[in-house]
Design a binder for these strands. Sequence first.
DNA 1: CTGAAAGCGCTTACAG
DNA 2: CTGAAAGCGCTTACAG
Lengths: 340, 340
Amino acid sequence: MSSGGNTIYDIASAAGVSITTVSRVLRGEPNVAQRTRTKVENAIEQLQYQPNAAARGMAGGKTGTLGIVLPQLLNPHYAMIYTGAVSAAIESGQNLQLFSRHDILGKGASALPALMNPHLDGIVLYLEYPQREGLEQLEKTLNEIHRSMPFVLIGTVAPELPYPAISYNMAAIMKSTVSYLTGLGHRRIAFIGGAADSTNELRRDIGYQQGLREAGIIYRDDYRIPCSDTLEAGSSALRQLLDHLPRSEWPSAVIALNDLVATGLMASARTYGLRLPDDLSVIGCDNLFYAPYLTPSLTTIDLHQQQLGINAIRLLLSGDSRRENAAWHLIERNSCRPYF
Amino acid sequence: MSSGGNTIYDIASAAGVSITTVSRVLRGEPNVAQRTRTKVENAIEQLQYQPNAAARGMAGGKTGTLGIVLPQLLNPHYAMIYTGAVSAAIESGQNLQLFSRHDILGKGASALPALMNPHLDGIVLYLEYPQREGLEQLEKTLNEIHRSMPFVLIGTVAPELPYPAISYNMAAIMKSTVSYLTGLGHRRIAFIGGAADSTNELRRDIGYQQGLREAGIIYRDDYRIPCSDTLEAGSSALRQLLDHLPRSEWPSAVIALNDLVATGLMASARTYGLRLPDDLSVIGCDNLFYAPYLTPSLTTIDLHQQQLGINAIRLLLSGDSRRENAAWHLIERNSCRPYF
DNA sequence: CTGAAAGCGCTTACAG
DNA sequence: CTGAAAGCGCTTACAG
């Protein structure tokens, strides 16, 4: 094509060697005479040669590009992971290709071919886990991917999946969140979480209930509101919560699915005349960049997303198949206060 | 490779035709007998055939993938554009590949080869424009890209660049912003903007000064603070502004580079005991998703980023080389109030 | 309307 | 240590 670039042939003839030899020095093979290697390297330098990744992949070699699948990018949670991942990829001289479709699982294996198409050396998968019964289907899909390239799973990874993974231990995180609140004296603690039927949301619910139980608090169904992943959903979820409860039973604290939901919920709380945090403590999850700038500043869980992105790429590159938990910590700010 | 997929050969033999014919129906060429076409289509369907984009590209055809270069993704401004762009790409059956390095210009043409490497059918470029003297270098770079693939420029595009573009008219936007504020009665209007030496920041400064002039206000150097693109920078820029001014000359309104800077600046303002918006009106730019949820909710410029992403892909696909302005509008919320 | 052949830019056995 | 040859999965002239 008019791609205008020099090919391996150009540098072969410039260096006076065969393309095989050029390919060898390109890939850093050891069995090349120093003199030859130098000649080739000079030619590469002079002609500003750039290997064609597509051709490489097609010929069966490494393409030098990794992939990452993220549900979306509007939530900075994912953008942070991506940013960490690119930096780690660049550091290792790899390219990183982003796939931001969430349909990959919804449509099962049917979306898979699109992934296999570009010859990737490996891929990081942040999946949105399906209903429980979908887990089996998912495993089949993953086995299929596994056959053509290595991958690592990140996010809230079901422990049942026997693949390399860096996973948020959502049960532990939720339990700690609840304990933080009970430690402040709260007893009426609501949880505005995801749809209860996804496997990773399940995990959060377990942690929520464990946390309550440990503090001797009885779980109430009407303190658990399902909610999707947006600010607006957070706003209306809080309304739903409060509207179904006599004022005397309104929670004194609410745990949000994530900072987006927390943000929406805080605005909504004000419309009920609730002062924050005096009348209602709020805690989020993700530590988005603007969380310190909300009024009140938002107490939340920092999920170390950028580091997760970095670690995922490193794990992928290492070829190791270990499974580990992702780091996190609670950040105390001003949206929670002791309850007496 | 073990890429496991069926090739054009597989479907050729399944359909009992040559690979040439398969290729023809794949690419929708008209000169194929209906019967033959049907046979081939059935085989494609049955074998779940997926064309290999890399091979396609290498053979000189369309790859079906477009690219987009964005400076970064942590600022939702860019994530919105990306999101719009993918949706438009998917709608047209194209893939979209994201490149988020900002070094493409910093390093001049040297970062270019990485872009040409994957065989893209075209690319959307959101560039960070260089100092004035860099414009010439930039044009050379663009000419080089132009030779191998079509592109469209988006963002604040220098009018000097003779390429298809959808551009924010920053001068007009800034002028309107100032006029909005002067319309509210403000006279001491500060501008916390970008480094004054970038060509697109220059454009904003022009609009700022025009707006002032129209209202008969004299431009003051000490009301113009340079600032980078982060919340922290916004915080310290405001400090820098106020610390150098006697209290009686503190501005009654401040225009921020973007919502990130506005967010940081608002927090900083409070530490000076300023009530918002009573003591200081603030206006941002970008209309990030959380802007309505700040206290006070942030008046800002909506830049219609998602639509910009969509339009950019469509313009690219159309092959048209027109240059147009991007849509925008001011969103009044509660961070600005009349000044008496 | 259809097919055989060359070629895109590489890598990988296979010889030497 | 080095090179000639085959092949990766396609598209594009060129014949027929």
